[in-house]
Design a protein around this nucleic acid. Structure first.
Lengths: 353, 353
DNA sequence: CGCCAGCACTCTCCGTGATTGAGCGCCAAT
DNA sequence: ATTGGCGCTCAATCACGGAGAGTGCTGGCG
């Protein structure tokens, strides 16, 4: 709702600018992104392509400033884009150039498809390498049910419990038993669970197990409860989590590293997974690439950062989000396609399996 | 060898100092560690406990400087300890106060014993929390052999392969098959491997499998090679790795964050696991807590850092290292027992299982 | 009405002293 | 051996001033 309003307002704002103003804003933002210095009227008049004197440029710039798209750090500096300026820029002025085939292939080659965990980790890593910012991936959420269990004897009173969930995820844990189980007892217990409960959720199992338990000898209860505990663990572990790579890259960004305090806040944010998740969950409601500029997400540590995200899907259903966190002054036209393609590659890699 | 020489030289160096000089060096280092300012003769004369005037103190300080234990950043500043000064301090002057029972219990409570991975991660986290520096743990090395395998059918041509190594580690991977295997074929293949090769290393299996393979139908070869690949993966994955937590803490240390460049080098070092491993492997050759001061380890990024490590063991055998990376100006008397106890708790947690 | 040259004004950025204060080294006296 | 005293050095801080960059405004021109 408020989201739609925002879009509309944005379009209006952009329309309020005549073509010249738009071009100049675009040129200014591009220039500022390129070299990080406030852009003055002289410079703008040279590179804009329009044949206008600095004085005329200044008039337009004054308008742009009044409308809140640009601002000057101090009287005798050039102008820099404001958050709103960036907003208009990415929404209506930006021209993204898609990655060429070679780059896509390289990117694809770097994804490690062995298992979901590695896939997610490598996607995050690839994002950080390609953009030289921090890469983030929200792990796929899944509806986990019970598929298969196995008990393996490690020592007299030590068992290895292996649990396979419906989505093919494998959990394992070592349990100390009070009683010594024979291999056949272990097989029996496993068979019981596998036959009775395959396909059920752990919730269901918990509900039914008391009734069914009579069929088994009493000394099996320890195995059962261990299995259930592992199941719960599996559910907990497969909850959404966010994987971040290349935070180090952000240390090198002078926009951010200039004031240590902010930088530390930012890194602390990275350790606060839940907060990040909330932000990224929003992104998974919409299709395609989304961009959060500055504090738009409502998190102060992200003041001078932008977050570029895109959801990825399995079998047509959105299951997670990939993205990049970098300084607001980033090369959006490069980052956007990278995030976009990564999301798509991740989708197809996950769907194939 | 050169290591022994060093120890001996150190002892000599300490002996070359008379009692007064030792006390003053100790006081100076303690004071410097406490507030990070160069310590002047006036301050030292006040807090040393000795009843000496600043002028006398200055004489001693001049001697200490000549011997290379302290240095002054510039003419009109006090003195700060050099790396050698710290060395003597921790080797012969330092008085550590052991943790009290309550702290040990708190520490123990924070370790998550569910499985090895979590245990190691939590140990690293605890170290970083307690010291407010970066915690490091080298994962236990193990001699991995084959114990058990299982094939589980996920879909027509998709299998889940579960591999248990001798040390109870579980590997799993999804494989796409060309042929559709029946459940009984999968059981047959698993049984074949489990009976023939239980207890072998993957090397041995690779050697023997060609000979033994004739006994099985030809279409089993894909399963076998997949199993071997997973085995190799298991060996690779269970190779030593180092887990680091709380790097963020180092951002707050003003000794380090004063020059960004170094800080970045340091963080890059953290991403270079192999380099760190080499350093930490050294530590696992000796018993008890070891301390590397400044660049002693031969790594420039650690210029202004110290590394405090201690090996941990399973069944009396050293299998890994825990430690802390922080600024050279750290409260050694606090950090040393923390690292020491963590190593011991980790040892006992791993031995119990 | 749009454009533009010119001019005064405002700030930041540096470099240059001048001042202050901490701390040392040396020396002569005890 | 210890100590008080003296002169010296050097970092840190501040004030001042000029240079440079860029703006806003005004008045003139097509």
């Amino acid at each position: 709702m408020s989201f739609l309003c925002k879009i509309v307002r944005m379009a209006n704002e952009a329309q309020a600018l005549n073509e010249r103003a738009q071009l100049l804003l675009k040129t200014l933002v591009e220039r500022y992104i390129a070299d990080g210095q406030p852009v003055g009227s002289r410079a703008l008049s040279k590179i804009s392509g329009l044949d206008l004197s600095p004085a005329s440029i200044r008039n337009v710039m004054a308008d742009l400033e009044e409308m809140g798209f640009i601002a000057s750090p101090h009287t005798s500096a050039g102008r820099v884009p404001t958050a709103r300026g960036y907003r208009v820029f990415v929404d209506t002025l930006l021209t993204v150039k898609p990655l060429d085939r070679i780059e896509i292939h390289q990117l694809e080659g770097q994804l490690q498809v062995e298992n979901t965990q590695k896939l997610v980790a490598s996607a995050s890593h690839v994002l950080s390498e390609l953009t030289r910012f921090a890469g983030i991936v929200v792990t796929p959420r899944r509806a986990s049910g019970f598929r298969h269990i196995e008990f393996l004897k490690l020592a007299e009173k030590r068992l290895l419990l292996i649990l396979v969930t419906a989505d093919g995820d494998v959990q394992n844990r070592i349990i100390q038993t009070e009683k010594v189980y024979s291999p056949s007892e272990l097989v029996e217990a496993a068979n019981f669970l596998n036959q009775k409960f395959a396909g059920c959720t752990f919730e269901e199992i918990r509900g039914r197990i008391h009734a069914e338990l009579k069929q088994l000898r009493e000394d099996m209860t320890q195995l059962m409860s261990a299995a259930l505990a592992a199941g719960d663990q599996a559910v907990t572990d497969s909850a959404e989590d966010v994987v971040i790579s290349g935070e180090v890259n952000l240390l090198g960004i002078d926009d951010l590293s200039s004031n240590m305090g902010k930088l530390r806040d930012l890194f602390n944010l990275f350790e606060h997974r839940t907060t990040l998740l909330q932000l990224l969950d929003v992104s998974s409601r919409a299709q395609g690439v989304q961009i959060f500029i500055g504090g738009e997400a409502g998190l102060q540590p992200l003041d001078e950062c932008s977050v570029v995200t895109a959801p990825y899907e399995v079998d047509g259903k959105i299951v997670g989000t990939v993205g990049v966190i970098g300084p607001t002054r980033m090369a959006y036209e490069r980052v956007i396609p990278i995030v976009d393609i990564t999301a798509k590659l991740l989708s197809s890699a996950l769907t194939q399996r």
